[in-house]
Design a protein around this nucleic acid. Structure first.
Lengths: 392, 392
DNA sequence: CGGTATAAGTTGAACACAGCAACATATAAA
DNA sequence: TTTATATGTTGCTGTGTTCAACTTATACCG
């Protein structure tokens, strides 16, 4: 029943049309990568001459540039390759319990630099802002004069009011109602956008990962501090009224009573089962996948059994095409995919279950930086001309 | 995080622009009703002259017409009232366990006629199609020559694959994989679109009911045959991969084990508590709301307690602005709203809970006919010129 | 090696649509 | 009756896309 809408009240005039088309092209370059101009023509359905003009305008704004055609074995005149201009960058920041990570992400989605500042204990909001401002200094110090910084994007493990970048509640950082966007913006003088880490993960898996081309998906990430999630609906991130949507970790898991999912399915339990106090994500993955210990497998099954009803409910409500599991959830999935499938099937309607595939997340450690950057690129992608004209 | 999108691949040219604006105006007329042309100008943000031209074009297609200005106490030249043309109609059909209802819904959303054909037992798909075709005959027989029938919309209590109008599973009608759209289209020669009844209810409550103006909401309806639901995201109906989204009745309720919501919260139990075998919706409402029986209140509380965790999970996942309860769910809500509120608060994250309001459904028996019609009007609203030029 | 087919770039004219400004008109208020 | 106000009406302007004709660069084939 897609496409049945409420009043789209807004009228559209010719300049918005141009804006839309510029946006379509730049978004294509940013998300689908460099490609021949003819490919842009094909994908947008626009006329050759129109696309040429649009690309020229983007080039004028310093957002795109053309390079020599890729050697191809095709007949016909070669089409120049169009690239997103990597001199336009976003700064991405990800505060976590044990460190603050920052990076530089170029238009096109490539992480070109990253720094990590480890902390003894979870940083307070004030500390995180100070550390971040410092990292931003470090990262921007080496920029050449023609680098354009669009802004700062922050991925926070907690509930974020997206409108104004207020962190409502981040349990593991012990933050409550911290106006991160305002503080960081004041400290750096840059535009700051803040989002939930798992929601941004969902977005990035949709754009660049296993969810590429899939318009309805659910993403669940299992991290050291719990389970977060995000939902992609009709190709864009589901925010909800305040931007808090996707909190699967706090829905009920498949245990007795009302216990929430993230207290039934925990990374620490998995670590304990393989006899470790701590481990890097890849390390844990390795340990669990190659363990012959029956106790480990039993735990994996208990965790999958707790996860399945939550996924079943989500499938019945959202009817997604794909469920992406990241972090240690990806590990337990990989350990016994059939088991999870079977359990999920038992907890969901056949028609909806038939549509869905459950897959491991494809992207690794750069995921959150790219996601945070995406937050900052969003307004640029929506209106390239506005940015182009503002800062020449 | 709304507005962060995947590639919008499509380019837009001037004719699509015209289409969009025609669509915006007609949708406004259909959903917000007759209004002065100046109001259309204000709402669309378009120029006076543009709106005049657009309305003239719609009038040419026989989709809108202008009437004398409403007497108003305002200074300035009065603006003519613009109306959706009621000679453009959709046929709406709703097969249920005990009857097949059909109606005529005019552009503008008014139900202008309805017929009900009662059945001894739940109609088979074949019977339902035959009955429907017959009702369509009856309804269209009296049409004047200038009435234009856009098509037939069917609201089915079951899982519907929206693309091709296949009913995957309708337990109470005992239908499995019935190609309703194809059958009915063949029998009547009209375009047929099929949707899930509760999803269409959600849509209609969003457009015309308590959800008017609210872009993120959840609708749950309690009927004799179970609990159905629908989700509105960013102002349009959430379909999901196959169009099955919104099956809240089959998520887990707040009981022991994995019992689903609709087997914990049942209309029959409520009927039994008030000592009745059957009752019309309004009658049951009356009986429950005015009962002093402690057993009735206790049952209402048990049902609300089972409903609350399901709503809490939905709130955490979807972060809606509004939850609309219809049917007997509306009754038990009304009996003790504070009780439900408190229970839901306990089962959802504070930040998300703060955004949400729980309300009774506003629309009555015409809801499903209007919803089914909406399904059929959708393509017309999306491209008025296409219809206008096709059938002059 | 030259000719042909093919696909895409380039250019200038045509076309469609929304905006704009000036003027006309219908109402309320003074 | 006059004035202020809001809106309709009309013809013109500007902008963006398309179209058609022409040009160019590549592969393929004899």
């Amino acid at each position: 029943m897609a496409g049945i809408n409420a009043p789209r009240v807004s009228g559209v005039s010719t300049d918005q049309l141009r804006r839309h088309n510029l946006s379509a092209i730049l978004t294509l370059l940013h998300h689908a990568g460099s490609q021949p101009r003819s490919a842009l023509t094909a994908q947008t359905g626009l006329n050759r001459s129109t696309v040429a003009a649009l690309v020229a305008e983007l080039a004028e704004y310093g957002l795109a540039h053309e390079t020599d055609p890729d050697p191809t074995k095709q007949v016909g005149r070669p089409s120049p390759t169009v690239n997103a201009d990597e001199r336009t960058v976003a700064i991405a920041i990800n505060p976590e319990v044990d460190a603050v990570t920052a990076g530089v992400v170029a238009l096109g989605g490539k992480v070109v630099d990253r720094v990590r500042h480890e902390t003894e204990q979870p940083p307070s909001a004030r500390d995180a802002v100070a550390i971040s401002a410092d990292l931003v200094q470090q990262l921007t110090a080496g920029f050449s004069a023609d680098t354009r910084v669009v802004g700062i994007g922050v991925a926070v493990p907690g509930l974020v009011r997206v409108d104004d970048g207020l962190v409502r509640f981040a349990p593991h950082l012990e933050w409550t109602d911290e106006p991160i966007a305002a503080l960081l913006s004041e400290a750096t003088g840059l535009e700051v956008a803040v989002g939930n880490d798992a929601s941004l993960g969902a977005l990035v898996e949709h754009i660049y990962g296993v969810g590429s081309g899939v318009d309805d998906l659910i993403y669940l990430n299992g991290g050291p501090s719990g389970i977060g999630g995000g939902v992609i609906v009709r190709g864009s991130l589901l925010g909800g009224a305040g931007g808090y949507a996707g909190e699967f970790g706090h829905t009920r898991g498949g245990g007795a009573g009302d216990t929430d999912l993230e207290s039934l399915v925990r990374r620490t339990d998995l670590l304990a089962a393989v006899g470790r106090a701590a481990a890097a994500p890849d390390e844990l993955d390795e340990l669990v996948l190659h363990s012959d210990d029956a106790a480990v497998l039993a735990l994996v099954h208990r965790q999958l059994a707790a996860l399945a009803p939550a996924l079943g409910d989500a499938i019945n409500i959202l009817n997604p095409q794909l469920i992406v599991l990241g972090g240690f959830l990806s590990t337990i999935l990989e350990r016994d995919p059939a088991y999870l499938d079977e359990r999920v099937a038992a907890h969901s309607l056949a028609a909806a279950y038939d549509d869905v595939r459950i897959a491991r997340a494809a992207l690794g450690s750069d995921l959150l930086l790219i996601g945070a950057a995406e937050l900052t690129f969003a307004p640029l992608l929506a209106d390239p001309a506005g940015y182009g004209r503002a800062r020449p």
